[in-house]
Computed example of a mutant assay.
Amino acid sequence: MVQVVHSPQQERYEAKVNGEYVGYLDYVDEGGSVVITHTVVDQQYGGRGYASKLVRYVLDDLRGKDRTVVPLCSYVADYIGKHPEYSDMVAAPGGR
C-alpha cells in the first residue's frame, strides 16, 4: 500500500511503501494553480505502479482543495491524458 505525505513547505508529496521511501512529486504553488514540475520514483521501485498512485493521490488532493494544475511534468500530462476525469483540473493558459 502506498502512503503519501504532503510537505507544503517543501512543495512536495512523498510516497512510501511499508515505510520505505519510493519517490516524490514536486510542484510550485502559484495561488489558484499548482504547477507540477517533476514526478520521480526510485529506479529500484519502477514498474510497480507507484508513480500512477502518487499522481492520482495528488490530483485527488488538489481537486478537494478546488485547485487547478499546470502539468509541466510529462508523466502527469500523460496521466491526465489517459484519465480524462482529471482534464477539468488543467488550468487554462493565463489562469483558470
Rank of each mutant, 00 (worst) to 15 (best):
L25A: 04
Y27N: 04
S74N: 15
G19I: 13
V55F: 05
E85Y: 05
H38G: 01
S74C: 08
Y75E: 03
L62M: 14
G94F: 08
A77T: 08
G94S: 08
G31Q: 07
Q44V: 07
G81C: 02
V22N: 05
Q9R: 14
T68K: 02
G31F: 05
M1Y: 12
V58T: 14
V70M: 03
V2N: 09
E30Q: 12
D29S: 08
D78S: 15
G94I: 14
S87R: 13
D29M: 08
A92R: 15
K53M: 08
Y57T: 09
G47Y: 10
R48A: 05
V34S: 00
V69E: 07
G19P: 01
Y57C: 07
G95A: 15
T68R: 13
Y75F: 12
V76A: 04
V76N: 04
M1V: 14
K53I: 06
K16S: 06
K53T: 10
Y57R: 11
E11A: 08
D60T: 00
T39G: 03
S7G: 02
N18G: 04
V55S: 09
R96S: 08
L54V: 05
A92L: 14
V35C: 01
R48C: 02
V58A: 03
C73E: 06
G32P: 14
R56S: 08
G81H: 15
D78E: 14
K82H: 03
